[in-house]
Computed example of a mutant assay.
Amino acid sequence: MAKYQLLLLAFLSLVAMKPQIVFGNFQEDMVFNWGAPHSSIFNNGQNMQLQLDRYSGSGVQTNKQFLFGSIEMHIKLVHGNSAGTVTAYYCSSTGPKHDEIDFEFLGNSSGHPYIIHTNVYTQGIGSREEQFYPWFDPTADFHNYTIHWNPSQIVWFIDGLPIRVFTNNEAIGVPFPNEQAMRVYSSIWNADNWATRGGLVKIDWTRAPFIARLSRFNPRACEWTGPISLTACGSNSPANWWTKPTYHKLSYSQMGQLKWVRDNFMIYDYCKDTKRFNGRMPRECSKPII
């Protein structure tokens, strides 16, 4: 009998040691920053929906600020004709010289694909857009959208596949977002002046309300606690898994995944828009993306 008890204890110890994924709680971790009557949190804080109608959209932000790590959100986008709407999920600091890392989902006319719009701001300057068509239906189910951010690079992931990399090129004079803590935001809003075919397709309000659903918010990131965090969050401490060498650049298999996405689903790259920049391209465009 003692033998079986020892085996049971050993098994329970192994179970206890197994890493458990603990998702954030919208009720505890976020606050509505606008349109609260148009939003709802349910399932004990595990799920949230944001709503847009002709009167208002809605948005939330985290109570805490972060500097480096991985921010994960599962999102199910507005179904059907969502032309003119934008569902946004992003990290941002505040102020005129803010840093920001964006996922924005530009609504579609029925039968046409969403556009996944990405951007990065450093010191208040953006104009670094890259856009993609999804290779899946983002309205049929939840998909994992992750922003991975460390001192070496920013990587945008969808369901574990990297779609974009913004490398730290401070050595050639390109600012990198590494000194300002960011909150996590999500919102849905009326952008029919530009979102769908450059604003040609307007929102059909007869289809309102437009609802975006969110779940499994998981901020595996360094919490900002003040100026000391600049060093603490970016150090090579064993606790800072995001600074380990394996996260300095994509793996060989990830580079293949990135190439597949960009070769097949990318529809706009600011680094190829020579007309927009009158031939004076941003400095980072002279460097390989990885």
Rank of each mutant, 00 (worst) to 15 (best):
V184Q: 11
H112Y: 10
K259V: 00
H74R: 03
Q20E: 07
W149M: 02
D99C: 00
S13D: 06
K259E: 08
I163R: 13
G35N: 06
K244M: 01
T85N: 06
N264K: 02
G107M: 12
N43C: 03
N236Q: 13
L6A: 15
L106T: 01
M281C: 02
H117V: 00
L67M: 10
L214G: 05
F132V: 10
V22Q: 13
I172L: 03
E129F: 07
P19I: 06
T139L: 12
G57R: 03
V174C: 09
L7A: 07
P219A: 04
K202D: 03
S58L: 05
L106N: 02
E104T: 13
L7G: 11
V86D: 04
H38Q: 15
Q254N: 04
L230I: 03
F210C: 02
L214V: 03
H117Y: 15
V22W: 01
Q257G: 11
W135V: 01
A221D: 06
P37R: 15
E170Y: 00
T243V: 14
L258R: 08
N81K: 01
T146Y: 01
R164L: 13
M266E: 05
F210N: 00
G107P: 05
N63H: 14
T231V: 04
N33F: 04
W205T: 06
M17K: 10
Y90G: 05
W149L: 06
I41F: 09
Y133G: 03
F166C: 01
N218R: 06
F42A: 06
T167N: 04
I125H: 10
R262K: 15
W189H: 02
I158K: 08
M17W: 08
T62D: 08
I163E: 03
Q180D: 09
S229F: 01
I101H: 05
L77K: 03
K76P: 11
P37C: 13
S40N: 15
R283I: 11
G126F: 07
V60H: 04
Y121F: 15
K272P: 01
A88N: 10
E104N: 06
K64I: 12
G173R: 05
W149D: 04
F217Y: 12
T118L: 12
P209W: 06
T167V: 07
Y4T: 14
F217C: 00
C271L: 14
N236V: 01
F277Y: 09
W34T: 10
F26T: 09
V261R: 07
C271D: 07
A36T: 09
E223Y: 04
S215N: 05
G226M: 05
Y114K: 06
R213L: 11
N168D: 15
V155M: 09
L258C: 05
V120G: 11
P238D: 14
I163N: 08
N169L: 10
